[in-house]
Design a protein around this nucleic acid. Structure first.
Length: 494
RNA sequence: GAGGGCGUAGCUCAGUCGGUAGAGCAACGGCCUUUUAAGCCGUGGGUCCUGGGUUCGAGCCCCAGCGCCCUCACCA
């Protein structure tokens, strides 16, 4: 960057030091968040132009707006809750503080001690009695009105994005609230929160390529988990009857508005339960999250209005294929023909994979409102129990919202013999052979006996996207993966 | 990995047919005690993403590269 902007601020920093101010200040206790200040102001019934001299108020935050009128100035101080107007009058603060004020810039972190009042136009204002520089900002912040728009810079300098764009802060605060509400809900159902390995000698529980790493002392290859599933089920064997984990998973696959190489997944398992329990929990959990973040059950998402009121629709996989693809999913030849008409390559692929490609192409675009898709072809579901009256159908649902998979659940397979067989079978057309790995120890665990159980996985990032109307997964992950950018100004980082 | 789009001042953006690089905000100097994107007067600020090429002359045209966004594929 051109160094004059930086130099101007450095010059002020030197001057501040000369005047005895620490440009990298210290503890500034007893401040109130701006939201609390606003709440406290209400019962005071301050008239426009009035001040209340009785109580001193201390606030701290970043200067995001500054209007200087010579001997009087207004500035907006931003904290994690929002903005608060500060009034600085030369008459009230004295010449020394005014000199300090003159050396402040947009972006500086400031502590204010003052009294509450309202301006002539009625805006709540803390009239400063003293000012304390808390940290000098050396770089000019982005424009006050448009903020930081460049998506690349927003992700690379999320710290700027957060203090400049209040919507971004709100989104991540909503993310926190959603996750909190899920924890609370599951705890209320007596689920135990557990932690299982991120570094795994075998990657299992999903079909995806893993990231590979190496442990030096043990001289062994390790994989970053693609899923915690097989460990959580081992805990069922051990007698933990209801467990959940909110885990960061890593998949070495493509990046898209709905995929980040690391993402957050909720997985839970309930002994002596099944698919129907998982449906109830899914609906209850989403309801709990919506109640906590507010905004109602009918929510905008892009061009859609999504109705999250339970119960969600339940639709059979083959019925949906019939309705939207006009094809009988059990008629392999008809499905092949449909796939061919869509230019979907089917060469050497198993029927189940072809069917699913047709489903993704023709059915998913219609699944806007929350829909439990049930009765999946068993071949697609290696860890799922089959229906007792029809072993070709798995007891599984996927929850679709806004044409995207949000959750996935099954009645868990606990028959070690069947598990051993499905582990060994690799479907043709299902990615490459690194995806399914035989986990002998997991089968042994099943041989000790895993209780019949229901299991559920929910993509937390996607849930947050849906509930905050975020178009990209990068909008709900604080530091999404970006390629490093070498540049003179950027130095080596990020 | 394939296709398409974008990259100009600290930020948000204009830039016509290839002919001296522009605005607003921010910055700097001055005025201003109730502003709401405050206002007024003045000043400075550019690796036009990078590297080649075409041309008398390139921000603009061509080639290559880098980064980001979108679509598709893998995946959730």
């Amino acid at each position: 960057m051109s160094s004059d902007l930086l130099e101007a601020r450095l010059a002020k920093l030197r001057r501040l030091r000369e005047l005895g101010h620490d440009p990298y200040g210290r503890r500034f206790p007893a401040t109130l968040p701006s939201a609390i200040v606003r709440r406290k102001a209400e019962p005071l019934q301050l008239a426009p132009g009035a001040t209340d001299d009785r109580a001193r108020i201390r606030v701290a935050g970043r200067i995001v707006l500054l209007r200087d009128m010579g001997k009087l100035a207004f500035l907006h101080l931003r904290d994690a809750d929002g903005d608060l107007q500060i009034g600085v009058s030369r008459r009230d603060v004295g010449d020394a503080a005014w000199e300090l004020f003159k050396l402040l810039d947009l972006g500086d972190l400031l502590g204010v001690d003052g009294v509450l009042g309202r301006t002539k136009t009625g805006e709540l204002t803390v009239w400063a009695r003293s000012l304390t520089l808390l940290t000098k900002c050396l770089r000019p912040p982005p424009e006050k009105w448009h903020g930081l728009q460049d998506v690349d810079l927003r992700y690379r300098r999320r710290y700027v994005d957060l203090f400049v764009n209040p919507d971004v802060m709100r989104t991540f605060r909503a993310r926190l609230t959603i996750i909190e509400s899920i924890r609370e809900y599951l705890r209320s159902l007596d689920f135990w929160e557990v932690e299982t390995p991120t570094l795994q000698p075998l990657h299992g529980g999903a079909a995806a390529r893993p990231f590979t790493t190496h442990h030096n002392t043990l001289d062994m290859t390790l994989f970053l988990r693609i899923s915690p599933e097989l460990y959580l089920k081992r805990l069922l064997v051990g007698g933990m009857e209801r467990v959940f984990e909110i885990s960061r998973n890593f998949r070495n696959e493509g990046i898209s508005p709905r995929h980040n190489p690391e993402f957050t997944m909720l997985e839970l398992y309930q002994a002596y339960g099944d698919l129907s329990d998982m449906m109830e929990i899914t609906e209850g959990m989403i309801r709990a999250a919506i109640n906590r973040i507010g905004g109602g059950a009918i929510r905008p998402f892009g061009v859609h209005a999504i109705n999250f009121n339970p119960p969600f629709a339940r639709r059979r996989y083959f019925d949906l294929l019939q309705e939207f693809a006009g094809v009988d999913g059990r008629d392999a030849a008809a499905v092949q023909a449909r796939a061919a008409s869509l230019n979907i390559p089917t060469q050497g692929m198993d029927d189940a994979i072809v069917i699913n490609k047709v489903f993704e192409a023709l059915v998913e675009p219609h699944l806007v409102q929350p829909t439990f898709v049930i009765d999946y072809p068993a071949d697609l579901c290696p860890l799922t129990r089959r229906k007792p009256d029809d072993p070709s159908i798995a007891e599984r649902f996927e929850l679709y919202v806004a044409c995207t998979e949000l959750a996935n659940a099954y009645t868990e397979l606990n028959d070690p013999a069947v598990q051993r067989e499905t582990f060994t079978r690799q479907l043709r057309g299902e990615g490459d052979e690194t995806m399914r790995v035989f986990d002998e120890d997991f089968v042994m665990a099943l041989e000790y006996g895993m209780p019949p159980a229901g299991g559920l996985g929910v993509g937390i990032d996607r849930l947050v996207m849906l509930l905050t109307n975020a178009p990209s997964i990068r909008d709900v992950i604080l530091f999404p993966l970006q390629r490093p950018r070498a540049g003179a100004d950027e130095a080596q980082h990020p």
